[in-house]
Amino acid sequence: MLDLLIRFQNMDRRWVFLGMALAIVLPMLVPFSLPFKVDQRVQDLYDRVEALEAGDTVYISADFDPGSRPELEPFFRTHLHHLFRQDVRVVMGTLWATAPPLVKPILEDIAQEYGKEYGKDWTFLGYVEGKELAIKSLGQSVRKTYPLDDRGNKTADLAVMAGLDAMRDFDILTSVSAGFPGTQAFVLQIQGQYNLEMASACTAVSAPDYIPYYQSGQLFGLSGGMPGSAQYEKLVYASVPPEKRPRLPATSGMNVLSIGHLYIIILLLLGNLAFFLTRGGEEN
């Protein structure tokens, strides 16, 4: 028995990898649905967007890349649906060089779906370098930070920017953030200084870092990783009949996440059990 446990502890890690692969693939092949509750942080985000009125404006900073796509793209898509459904004007920019080819087609598709006109109802300002400097500059003037939009139009001439310049002119700032520069830099550089109404959708690993900002009221809502995205999908599509709903990637991903997490916890338990049972034997 002791030998078996020692061998188990020292087993080839490729078996662990194989188990992980199965934990990811099997829930995809055999779909099932587990109910989940909505966190208060996501509920607050949803409620604030619901309270927006037609013609209000939202600035989205889409700061993520293909690596964090599974966690953040579902939120990003659902948020755009939510905003356009509310008839809100959307201005989007990014501080990540790798984001534009990823986020711009999504914005274009969803805007088109709702019959929104470029320049009047929405715009994409593109990418700006400068990280915290750019954020600081956005706080003062979006028009100066982005003199031209992604299509080469003068930002100041766009109808969607009428009456908008400094970040505080926007009703809401949403940071879809996979790291730096992202939510934390926005909070540190401009949220406090201008008292902005700001929400964040971040990767699961960053969520514990941003919870203090939510508790202090600096963020009015927070969606963490795939669970946050799935909860947001649940709220936004609650009023849409199931047959009319688009595919909800975060909701279906929750099954994979469930089995994946369970697998890691089982490994942790077994690893520790074997460690304790063999410790005496190894010492002897």
Binding site: L34, P35, F36, K37, A204, P227, M254, N255, L257, S258, I259, H261, L262, I264, I265, L268, L269, N272
Partner: peptide
Amino acid sequence: LVAAALVMFASVPIGEG
């Protein structure tokens, strides 16, 4: 270890359920 396992497990539907 306990905190990590708890947060991982209770953050997904299988733990909640």
